[in-house]
Simulated assay, not measured.
Amino acid sequence: MENQVFESSEERTFQYQSSLPSLPVPALDESLKKYLDAVKPFLNHKEYQRTEDIVKKFEHGIGKVLHHKLLERAKVKKNWLEEWWLNVAYLDARIPTQIYYNFGGPGPYLEHYWPPKEGTQIERGCIAIWHTLKYWELIRTEKVIVHRYGNMPLDMSQFRMIFCTCKIPGIPRDSLSNYFRTESEGECPSHLIVLCRGRVFAFDAVHEGHILSPPEIFRQLAYIQKRCHNEPDGPGLAALTSGERTQWAEIREYLTNLDPKNLSLLEKIQSSLFVISLDDSSPNGTPEDYTPITKLSLTGDPTIRWGDKSYNCIIFSNGTFGSNCDTFVADLSPCKRLLGQDLTLI
């Protein structure tokens, strides 16, 4: 399978989506055989025989009815499993998903070129952010090469979920909001969210049709860092995303009912390209041991992790990097636009 990223002038990233084959429903007897093969090592002879009898009864009884229902569902849905899997595996969960579901770790962590060094957080961060923005631009202009298995194009829809995507807490089920659009589809949010010392800032990553340069991004981050270091810490609203889901949903509803401005600010966070976390921690990761970075990426300061976002880019104070991502992935005047906008909920 090819997983390299190139610019392609011959085909667009999502051009085969409508022509991809539907997810097939596996034959009932094949599924039951796989089930028996899977449980056999864990059962003695008598238990296995009893399990076989149960499986045969299922195959010729309710199993046949359920299999027919799956076949009927597959006739009207490209992927008969996707909705169920998303809901049951992710959106129905009530436990803190940032802790139990999210994944994260080091990266980009180039030890030989960028060893840990205090004072390089902003300098290195602006370069890493610029490269990430260039990747967003490739996806938005559909220049990421279509992945294939042999000559068969694979589903590229998950690439739409990397940027401008956020999980919204709900009762009894969360929901997903994806604001990403390709160029041919129309306007796409282009702002970034920066979390620093419990405060939330936003700035646009595109100016007059062009992605900000690393020095321009540096100016944004330096301005935000200076403000946060010279002023009191913020309320740490982001920590709510690490809590129990129903409780977070109730608090979110309370905030939006408190003042309409709060809903607008929350939607600005939700629709952002991704979140940048300026972290004061200094993990001493090495090529042999990524444990400190991984630990802080997954369980670090919750006031600077928006756990519901598809991607949190974590920049530590010693110039090393981490990431924290929600699992459902696998998105003024010129002088004011060049300064981070402080987002304060009432």
Results as ranks from 00 to 15, higher is better:
W84L: 09
G119L: 04
T141V: 01
F180I: 12
L212N: 07
N102E: 09
K167V: 14
K167C: 11
F180R: 11
Y90H: 15
R197S: 07
P108H: 03
C196S: 14
L86N: 13
N178W: 04
V200Y: 09
P189F: 03
Y135A: 00
I171S: 13
T182Q: 10
V144W: 04
P172R: 07
I171K: 12
E183T: 13
R199V: 01
Y223Q: 09
A205F: 00
P172C: 10
F218W: 09
G198C: 08
I217N: 00
N178V: 15
C164V: 03
H147Y: 11
F180Y: 14
E185M: 07
M161I: 02
Y109P: 00
E123M: 05
T120S: 15
I162A: 02
T165Q: 11
P169Q: 10
P214Y: 07
D155W: 07
V200L: 13
T182G: 12
L138A: 09
E123K: 11
I129S: 01
I127H: 12
M156H: 05
D92S: 15
R124G: 11
I217G: 01
I211N: 12
T182L: 06
I224T: 15
L91I: 14
V88A: 15
V194M: 01
P153T: 06
P153G: 07
G125A: 10
F103H: 08
E208M: 11
L86Q: 15
P215K: 08
L133V: 03
T182P: 10
R219G: 06
I168E: 14
I193H: 05
P116T: 09
E118G: 06
D155H: 11
C188K: 02
G125M: 07
I224N: 02
E208Y: 09
M152Y: 04
R140F: 07
I193N: 05
I193P: 05
K117A: 14
Y109V: 05
Q158L: 12
L91V: 14
I211H: 08
A128E: 04
T182H: 09
C196Y: 11
P214R: 06
F163L: 01
L91G: 13
G209T: 10
E187K: 08
P169C: 08
Q98F: 04
P96L: 03
L212E: 09
A205I: 00
P214F: 07
A93R: 15
Y109G: 01
H131L: 08
R173I: 11
E183P: 01
E208C: 09
F218S: 01
G119W: 05
Y135N: 00
N151C: 01
E183I: 03
K117N: 12
L176W: 07
G198A: 06
R148N: 04
K226H: 13
Y113H: 11
F159D: 01
I162M: 03
K134T: 05
Y90S: 10
I162T: 02
P106L: 02
W130M: 02
F180V: 11
E208I: 06
V200A: 10
G186F: 04
S190M: 02
M156S: 02
Q121Y: 03
L176E: 15
I127S: 04
Y223N: 14
